[in-house]
Nucleic acid binder design. Structure first.
Length: 451
DNA sequence: TCTGGGGTCCTAGGACCC
DNA sequence: TCTGGGGTCCTAGGACCC
């Protein structure tokens, strides 16, 4: 991109807005007594640490660590523990994006807690001031603190955002727009802090004596292309200040939709396994229909524990006669696959499904000899189910195959309320003090477990 | 006892064809 | 004796992201 395309002002700029410790901040937004205390959020099944407050980071609790290995440390320091509450985080994320839309229409929602914003023309010139404004507004309106990185490319904006978080005097906004200071800053950034450079590439680059972002920008293009593929070359150009990765405002439909989860307790029989497999299919098929697609291929997989005992894992691939988006059809196929790979005398810990060969609905080549697996009648039925569940909650209508007991459901011992998406779990305002609603349901904690 | 889940893109190599 | 060359499609695996 060159300035000639924007004759009325400076080059376009990107701002990356990233929520600080997002899941922890969501919990804090409804339980202010958690401010200033160490807080962590656990992955599904309360397995690993996936979010930490700054106080928890300071205690040395590592990201991604298995919770059971940190339990003692958490207990000693009275760390507040939460199970992942995705309905809450998803809704808070939507609110943050809504606020961002007040600042620019050019937004790429990159993940649940990050968005790229695009600015051109004269507004780009005062983007640092605007960044401070964005920060104030989002925090005031949603309760979520964010950091803002400003730069001429998305890769540099990612880096600027990291600096905004780590530099105390940055006050949450960091500008990597000036080419002069950039060289000095990049020579203090380790290569694996760059978006797109992971551990493998870090090791590889270290073998050639490249340790900092600045050193990487000095490497020869042909060499980079060979070592890091075209993706890496693009990234290095971006570090040099040349924008190669455009704002992606309308993400393409998914090419694969996966659902897989460890069970809350091990399962051993085929009958028990049918239920989670059916539930995974129902969930993936819902996403499939939401993007108006059909799947031409389905995989089922099944595993014992990777950590204890002899490992067994297997997968089956099944193709419907024609692509379909019908939950009952897909469940039938998944169960066929499950029967093929199931073996007795194993304790299974995880099952999953994968939908691939995804095509848009309506593109089906009609076969004269059958009416197609996803005909109008099927489609109407599925749309009705999706509508009801959209209005009254995800699990209002479900197929018998998904089971009622659902003993395999994941462990969530420290779940907070769904403050923003359930009427019966709303926070209550009590005189001049906002508190959480009294315990209405024994299975849910108001503010997580106290250890 | 207890170790997450869901994606994308790129490349190399094999099969097959002319 | 002498054993081409190029294209396409598919898959597995590697690397990365949050």
């Amino acid at each position: 991109m060159s300035s000639t395309a924007y004759a009325d002002g400076p080059d376009p700029l990107f701002a990356l807005v990233d929520c600080n410790n997002f899941y922890v901040s969501c919990e804090r937004a409804f339980a202010p007594e958690l401010n200033g205390r160490p807080v962590i959020v656990l992955s599904n099944n309360d397995g690993c640490i996936v979010a930490r407050s700054n106080e928890a980071k300071a205690l040395g609790l590592p990201m991604g660590a298995p919770y059971f290995k940190c339990r003692d440390l958490c207990r000693r320091h009275r760390v507040r523990i939460f199970s992942s509450n995705y309905p809450l985080y998803g809704d808070m994320s939507r609110r943050v994006v809504e606020v961002l839309h007040r600042f620019t229409p050019d937004i790429e929602v990159y993940s649940i807690d990050e968005s790229f914003l695009g600015f051109t023309g004269t507004r780009a010139a005062r983007l640092v001031e605007e960044g401070a404004d964005i920060r104030r507004t989002v925090e005031q309106w949603t309760g979520i603190p964010v950091s803002v990185g400003v730069a001429p490319t998305k890769t540099l904006a990612k880096l600027a955002n990291r600096l905004a978080k780590n530099h105390p005097d940055a006050e949450g906004v960091f500008d990597l727009n000036g080419p002069d200071s950039r060289e000095r800053i990049l020579s203090q950034v380790a290569v694996d802090e760059i978006w797109g450079i992971g551990r493998r590439y870090k090791d590889k680059l270290a073998r050639y004596g490249i340790h900092t972002a600045h050193q990487l920008t000095l490497a020869r293009d042909a060499w980079i292309r060979k070592q890091l593929t075209v993706t890496g070359l693009r990234l290095v150009w971006e570090l040099r200040g040349i924008s190669c990765i455009p704002l992606d405002q309308a993400p393409a439909p998914r090419k694969a939709i996966a659902r897989s989860r460890g069970f809350g307790q091990p399962l051993t029989t085929l009958d028990e396994l049918r239920e989670p497999v059916a539930a995974h299919v129902a969930s993936a098929a819902h996403v499939l229909r939401r993007q108006r697609s059909m799947a031409g291929c389905l995989q089922v997989h099944l595993e014992t524990s990777r950590f204890t005992g002899p490992y067994y894992g297997n997968a089956a691939t099944i193709r419907p006669v024609a692509p379909t988006a019908s939950t009952p059809h897909l469940i039938r196929l998944a169960h066929q696959g499950l029967e093929r790979i199931f073996k007795t005398d194993h304790t299974y810990r995880r099952a999953g499904i994968l939908l691939t060969d995804i095509s848009p609905q309506g593109s089906l080549q009609l076969n004269l000899f059958h009416s197609g697996y996803y005909d109008e009648k099927q489609k109407k039925l599925m749309e009705l189910i999706d509508q009801v569940n959209g209005r009254h909650g995800r699990h209002t209508l479900r197929l018998a195959a998904e089971g009622l007991q659902q003993d395999w459901r994941m462990k969530q011992a420290h779940l907070s309320r769904r403050y923003t998406t359930r009427w019966d779990e709303l926070p209550l305002a009590d005189a001049d003090r906002v508190s959480t609603a009294p315990e209405a349901d024994g299975a849910r904690n108001t503010t997580g477990a106290t250890l």
